[in-house]
């Protein structure tokens, strides 16, 4: 009994000391503010194998680097965006991050209600109901030049095809988009532009599955393209697009992953176009923690390492590697500008 009581006293004393240290610290370590960061996913949820997941990765990294308090809410329907964002804002979070294009209007509304709370939105801006950017001074838009990443993998496809180093070499490559929306089309635009630059005679077929979650649908579209002679398939459809990689693998062709490095998804994946949503999320948090929050657009591109590419299950010939470096440097320098709209 006595032993137990002693133990309790010890614990109590320890707690008391910690409390005193925290509460009454006159200077030094205890004085640093703990930042509170809230992340709201769109309806894809955290396991979307796409940008919601990457945003979470960025949040976790920021958590271990800056010791922030983080909290995540998944939205189950579009009805949840406003209440979820409002909830964090009403609790005086230091930064509320909305993930995805779909949340633009909600971020526009809630950021207007809470002018003193900082917001960041991935792939969009805080807009009104007509889609006009409200330009609230407390909103940072995290945009990506997906076309930069698309261009890099376009270079790989175009050169492989021109040099006859792909599988069928009929001069046809393709892309499968989820839905025809700007972030998807940027990727495809860069891809088509760069492939055509490397191999002017190439045909780039573009199809849409109108879905982001059902791999079977994307696989169907991919198979249609394969039947049309496509040699290298670029997926731009999140979880649905995994079916594209699979279809390419079954047909013994090459495929290209999107957003994250999808090397492990299928042996057919020769490269991935990277959209570093994790870097963007991390940067946004870092800015707030360092007191450097800025409103307006922050664009992630090859130039600031917010977009890029990964070479996966294929060793590229030296000349392709050299060309990749040249193109990358030119895009960084601004002498080459991949288009945002599909040419």
């Amino acid at each position: 009994m006595a032993h137990k009581r002693l133990k309790f006293l010890g614990v109590a004393a320890a707690v008391l000391m910690v409390a005193m240290a925290c509460g009454g610290s006159p200077s030094g370590g205890g004085g640093t503010k703990q930042y509170k960061i809230g992340l709201v996913t769109d309806i894809g949820g955290l396991n979307d194998k796409s940008f919601n997941h990457l945003a979470y990765v960025g949040l976790e990294k920021a958590k271990s680097d800056f010791g922030i308090v983080d909290s995540v809410t998944e939205s189950h329907s579009g009805n949840d965006y406003v209440p979820n964002l409002t909830s964090f804002a009403s609790k005086n979070y230091d930064l509320v991050i909305g993930v995805g294009f779909l949340m633009q209007e909600a971020v526009g509304t809630v950021s207007g209600t809470f002018p003193n709370i900082h917001f960041a939105i991935i792939d969009g801006a805080g807009t009104d109901s007509t889609g006009k950017d409200l330009q609230h001074t407390n909103v940072q838009s995290l945009f990506f030049k997906e076309q930069d990443a698309g261009a890099m993998v376009g270079v790989i496809s175009g050169m492989l095809e021109k040099q006859g180093k792909a599988k069928k070499n009929k001069g046809v490559i393709s892309a499968v988009g989820g839905v025809s929306i700007p972030p998807v089309n940027h990727y495809i635009a860069g891809y088509k532009w760069a492939a055509t630059m490397e191999d002017p005679g190439i045909k780039v077929e573009v199809g849409y599955s109108n879905d982001f979650t059902d791999p079977a649908k994307c696989q169907g579209v991919a198979k249609g393209q394969i039947n049309d002679g496509s040699d290298i398939l670029f997926q731009v459809a999140g979880g649905c697009g995994l079916g594209v990689l699979q279809a390419a693998g079954q047909a013994g062709l090459y495929s290209i992953g999107v957003d994250a490095d999808q090397k492990a998804a299928d042996p057919s994946v020769i490269a991935s176009a990277l959209k570093k949503v994790d870097v963007a999320t991390y940067t946004a948090i870092q800015n707030v923690v360092k007191g450097q929050f800025k409103s307006g657009a922050l664009t992630f591109s090859i130039a600031n390492d917010g977009a890029g590419y990964a070479v996966d299950n294929l060793t590229l010939p030296a000349d392709i590697q050299a060309e990749l470096k040249t193109v990358q440097d030119k895009i960084k320098a601004g002498t080459l500008t991949p288009p945002a709209d599909i040419p």
Partner: peptide, 15 residues
């Protein structure tokens, strides 16, 4: 419905 979100944010249990 409304509580599910708060449950995830506060208790870290999937909504």
């Amino acid at each position: 419905h409304a509580g599910g979100s708060v449950m995830q944010a506060d208790a870290n249990i999937s909504g």
